[in-house]
Design a protein around this nucleic acid. Structure first.
Lengths: 225, 225
DNA sequence: CTATTATTGTGATTTGAATCACATTTGTTA
DNA sequence: TAACAAATGTGATTCAAATCACAATAATAG
């Protein structure tokens, strides 16, 4: 089950900057684990003892809010998970759960920190990844609070098609309740709007599979809704 | 007007890690500028050509949203501004404006990047600052979307007292419209709730000066509102 | 110091979406 | 595959907050 980092076909841009020797060091302090749908990978409130790298699969990042769970975002591999926690605070500020089969590498935090200090190209890449994540978060935040449900759902569908699944037809592995918690709407409203979209021929729903039929219209709704 | 970084009394934790030689290098590539209330320090959509360090004063970070301006947060010195932009994308994703007298250092980006690569303690501190910022953003995001107006305003007042002004009595230099854009509420609702708080003796309002009178109550509202 | 503009206060009305309540469908497991 | 649990669909009702419409105060410039 062990995958040598040197031969990893899912290397992060940062890991690509490591020397052979450093990659060996990483390999020796890295554990690859598989997760099934629904499994918890990082749990909010627990101590963060590893850097987590999502090698394969999709996960959701969620926070226990004051009234309900907030799904912050859906992340696809490859991506580091919980970097802000690892370095910003010892305790995990959010949970991460698999929304399908996943493969995750747990990297020893001391090793990771060592690599950061010895290899500045590596740390620069990590810095860049962090920055990009934060910018994305800013935009998500603004959209979530300003648009109304139709617009937010359109945004979500576009994001799924363009960034998460990279295809116009994808298998939603999350419930409508999750979607509601992602776009800040109630489960019922999500259901209503999604069926409305289907009636208008904008999307097609076959149980959990959603296909985008009228991308133009979806863009419109995202912009004006 | 030039302040030598070596003798700067407002050095960032990161800059504290620099050697004398490196600090000299920083000094030579750093320009200190004063801003007045309302002045624009960083403008969304323009190219980011400098790392910006807020040496003294308060600023607001705001984004042009689809329907209105979103005030993302209020930041007090000392703090780097726009780091995510500098490294995540060349174009500024948000604007920064002074909400009072400010002193800001513009640091040449090439110099800054050089320091990142040559001094790993420095880059580690920057990394940590980024991580903390992102975690804070997560929490802000969740609160903003889940609590209702009373709770959000209570949160804001507590944040101002504890983190921004560090006193129970502070001079709000922003309009109620700004407050609305910060907590995601209309200007009218902000006015209503603020006067309601004042009537209930929770706060005291004297033109722009707010004094927190019943901290316990404010905490309650933040928790249950 | 007056004129003009920006900001704040407050009632009446409207509205988008939450909540409630239940039916229906889909999925799971014993 | 029957039986139960989880997820979804849909109408009726409620509600928090936005919007509208002005009045009343600051604040600022000429």
């Amino acid at each position: 089950m062990e995958i040598k980092c040197a031969h990893c076909d899912m290397k992060s841009p940062a890991a690509g900057k490591l020397s052979l020797q450093e990659t060996e060091k990483l390999s020796g302090n890295c554990l690859t684990v598989k997760f099934k749908k629904g499994d918890s990978i990082i749990k909010q409130g627990t101590y963060s003892t590893n850097v987590v790298y999502l090698r394969r699969g999709h996960v959701k990042i969620h926070i226990e809010g004051p009234y309900r769970v907030q799904v912050v975002r859906i992340v696809r591999s490859p991506s580091y998970l919980g970097l802000p926690t690892t370095f910003g605070d010892k305790v995990n500020h959010y949970s991460v759960s698999a929304i399908g089969e996943c493969e995750v590498c747990f990297i020893d935090i001391t090793t990771f920190r060592m690599l950061l200090t010895t290899n500045s190209d590596f740390s620069y890449q990590i810095l860049i990844e962090l920055c990009k994540g934060e910018l994305e978060l800013y935009n998500k935040c603004v959209n979530r609070t300003q648009k109304q449900i139709r617009g937010k759902l359109a945004d979500m569908l576009i994001d799924f098609a363009d960034n998460i699944f990279k295809t116009e037809s994808f298998n939603l592995n999350i419930t409508q309740e999750d979607i509601g918690n992602l776009v800040d709407a109630s489960r019922e409203s999500v259901s209503r709007v999604l069926t409305e979209f289907a009636k208008d021929g904008i999307i097609e729903i076959k149980s959990k599979r959603i296909t985008i039929r009228d991308r133009q219209m979806l863009n419109n709704i995202s912009r004006n809704g």
